[in-house]
Amino acid sequence: MKKILEVKNLKVHFELGGGMFKAKRVVHAVDGIDFDVFEGETLGIVGESGCGKSSLARALCGLNKITSGSALFAGKIDLAKASSKEWNEVHKQMQFIFQDPVAALDPRMTVAEIISEPLITLYPDMKKDQVLQKVLATMKLVGLTQNQVNRYPQEFSGGQCQRIGIARALILEPKILICDESVSALDVSIKAQIINLLQELQQQLKLTILFISHDLGVVKHICNRILVMYLGNIMELGNKQAIYSNTLHPYTKALLSAVPVANPTLEKTKQIQLLEGDLPSPVNPPKGCVFSTRCPQADDVCRASRPKGKIIQEHFVTCFKA
């Protein structure tokens, strides 16, 4: 399979505060991660809030600055040092779908204006008629009707707004779609509609999807491979079956056991691995393994040095114990 994105030792750091007399503090949001994304796959990125999954997604499409490392897009453009011309090329092929479907649409614009904006921006020579045809075709693709074209976002429900957001992303016919918690804010009955839509579109358009979510049920349903992040580091990476049925990393185990399942008998009997304490601050990550402060299996080795990633049974795992 062809690699569409090669991420090497990628770091995204933010500087906090730092006034005239205060030392700057650095948030290690993404702290040196390596992974590849293959064409046509759906890669799920999971982890708790503050694990850096959103910072990673936003860095890949230019919303956050990449501090160091590289992210090679389609084998030619390094996102860490792309020029604005190269970024425009990336924007044409990589689009983003946001979490809050309503906030992602400018309330002063009509549906047509919203959906056509990427097209007008990146293909300024396109004729108005052509643009409109394309808008209408894309609306049909995502299940919106043509007579909604001149309406304003306030008149739509959350699910429909998310369809508009998806249409805006798809009008450029991108290769990669980055979905940052794109179904989390939707109602249960609407969530399934949008998940199905994304899957259909993926098959139809041969899309590669980076699916960032905290909902492990949804991720399991939609993804081929899964990347588990914790405090800016990869804990475990592997295909779905490997991650869910042959879990190796203690953090993944804890995460999976904590997911409530819609089955009361199972819920009453299952053993939850409760994690002690909270996520450490990404300003001062632990010296050893980042998970060592909460890991039930941690020992002095874990607390003293960072484990290197290794490949076991088709998993990429970052743990001394695995």
Partner: peptide
């Protein structure tokens, strides 16, 4: 941000 991602 959506506009930024489209290179506006």
């Amino acid at each position: 941000e959506a506009a930024m991602v489209s290179g506006v």
